[in-house]
């Protein structure tokens, strides 16, 4: 009787089959997904037209100091003397007195430009992304103050903790080469 050269057992055959199947499966998955993938990474950003400035950005970021900050788009700003994003409602005087300021950390800086206009800047080292000024500016002003993820601070977590807590679904994945969603004059 002729001797069987390769002593292939059933178990070995099964194993080889599974092995080939796994390799083919991984290859297939890679091919399928490679066709539907993007070369660049995505980053998190807030759509300012959806954001309701609820204040979750201040408290839900994994960083001690949130990666979200308020930004000012100067093209939209009205440079008002009374700024609803800067002043307390019913402020005693329209000046930089602490009792008149809305921002709890004094992160908005008011600078005289020319009568009767004032420039408002955000000091990002002080801003905590509470969104109080955003609400004020959106309610009674042009809405030039709004929240954005600052990418020099953001860790770009796979699931953003703020996004998970965002009540309006304003957090989006955007392409890393266009990482900001700034308001524009034509949409204001």
């Amino acid at each position: 009787m002729a001797e069987i050269k390769d002593n292939v057992t059933r178990r070995q055959l099964l194993r080889t089959g599974c092995y080939g199947g796994c390799l083919a499966g991984l290859g297939g998955l890679a091919g399928l997904l490679a066709a539907k993938s993007r070369a660049g990474d995505t980053v998190w950003q807030i759509d300012p037209y959806i954001c309701i400035a609820c204040g979750n950005c201040e408290t839900h970021c994994v960083l001690e100091e949130s990666a979200v900050k308020c930004v000012q788009v100067y093209e939209i700003c009205g440079y008002c003397d009374y700024c609803p994003g800067f002043h307390q409602p019913g402020a005693v005087a329209l000046d930089t007195g602490a009792e008149n300021e809305l921002c709890p950390t004094g992160a908005i800086k008011r600078k005289f430009v020319e009568d009767p206009y004032f420039q408002y800047d955000i000091d990002e080292s002080l801003c905590v992304a509470c969104g109080k000024c955003v609400k004020g500016c959106a309610a009674f002003g042009n809405g030039s103050l709004f929240l954005q993820v600052r990418h020099d601070r953001c860790l770009n977590c796979n699931e953003c903790s703020i996004a998970a807590a965002c009540p309006s679904g304003a957090f989006k994945r955007v392409p890393a080469d266009k990482p900001y969603l700034l308001k524009r004059v034509e949409n204001a």
Partner: peptide, 17 residues
């Protein structure tokens, strides 16, 4: 009228790809 130059909003970039 005073020749004021409007600043632009800074947009620091994320880690490069």
């Amino acid at each position: 009228e005073s020749g004021y130059l409007m600043p632009s909003t800074t947009t620091p970039h994320p880690h490069q790809d």
